[in-house]
């Protein structure tokens, strides 16, 4: 292996070495997805007792929503927090003067985001099946597309967050944890898009996750693959990735002009 793949592997290896000797970090990756799944699992168990006819449907919609939303959350956080690890360890000065290209930096962060997401979400998916009998992958191969669309959205948001960190330094760090939570109401994780007031529906239309969850409900409630919503999700992902990728690159170059790369952690 040489050239760009080797440089990307160098960045990934740096993070894998960190996790290899830190089991609390590994545990932390699984903690929130599992906790969320447990809370919502008990909520659905309670609903099963109250509304017997719709219990199975409600359980599927709620647990499916929780688990899939974690895919977007963990993808976004995995990317942004891997970048912040470099900031916190004051290592960016070395990274940015190595031959690693900005695109390769992004590829390395995406690889880490994917690994962190899988480590965090798959145990929760397994537990949902063990504890509540909800098999997310029972929805069929379309789940892989749901995962892909939500990962792409997570990376796009993370590119925007990282651009803000490049611009504002440590002051923008909280965005790495909070920004996607702010989008939750418009992502229509637990309810149909039609539930929102009309102006907010327009906002939701622009969010890939809202289309993924429409697709998930179609698969769960009607047993069909909603091609239109899936296509809309991927198209929006492509648009957001292109837009926020440009913002990231523009901010990277602006940071090279302003000197922000020299003292980004301060």
């Amino acid at each position: 292996m040489n050239g760009a793949p080797r440089r990307v592997w160098g960045l990934v290896y740096r993070h894998l070495a960190l996790y290899r000797r830190s089991w609390p970090r590994l545990l932390e990756l699984m903690y929130w997805p599992v906790l969320q799944m447990l809370v919502w699992g008990f909520v659905t168990a309670y609903l099963a007792g109250v509304q017997q006819n719709t219990a199975t449907v409600a359980a599927g919609v709620l647990l499916g929503g929780v688990l899939l939303w974690e895919v977007a959350l963990r993808s976004q956080m995995g990317f942004a927090l891997s970048f912040l690890e470099e900031v916190w360890s004051r290592n960016l000065g070395h990274i940015f003067v190595s031959p690693l290209r900005p695109g390769e930096l992004v590829a390395g962060l995406i690889t880490m985001a994917t690994l962190r997401m899988l480590i965090g979400v798959l145990p929760a998916v397994g537990l949902a099946w063990l504890l509540y009998g909800f098999g997310l992958f029972g929805l069929g191969p379309v789940v892989v597309l749901f995962f892909a669309a939500l990962m792409l959205m997570g990376w796009a948001v993370a590119l925007g967050v990282t651009a803000m960190i490049l611009r504002h330094g440590a002051g923008a760090e909280p965005l790495a944890w909070s920004v996607l939570f702010g989008l939750t109401p418009f992502a229509c994780v637990f309810y149909p898009m039609a539930t929102l007031p009309q102006p907010l529906q327009w906002v939701a239309q622009a969010i890939p996750a809202a289309h993924v969850f429409e697709g998930m409900r179609a698969a769960l409630l009607e047993g069909r693959v909603d091609g239109w919503h899936l296509a809309a999700a991927f198209l929006l992902d492509a648009l957001w990735l292109a837009l926020l990728g440009r913002v990231f690159m523009a901010q990277f170059e602006a940071a090279r002009r302003s000197g922000a790369l020299m003292n980004i952690g301060e």
Binding site: R6, Y13, R14, A17, S89, N91, G93, H94, P99, L100
Partner: peptide
Amino acid sequence: NFSSPYVALPHRLTVAENLRVYAHLYG
């Protein structure tokens, strides 16, 4: 290449792991 006491290497990685990272980055 470049060295400065004001730019650190990741503290939790061993010396060998740090050097391995940069060996990969520099091909």
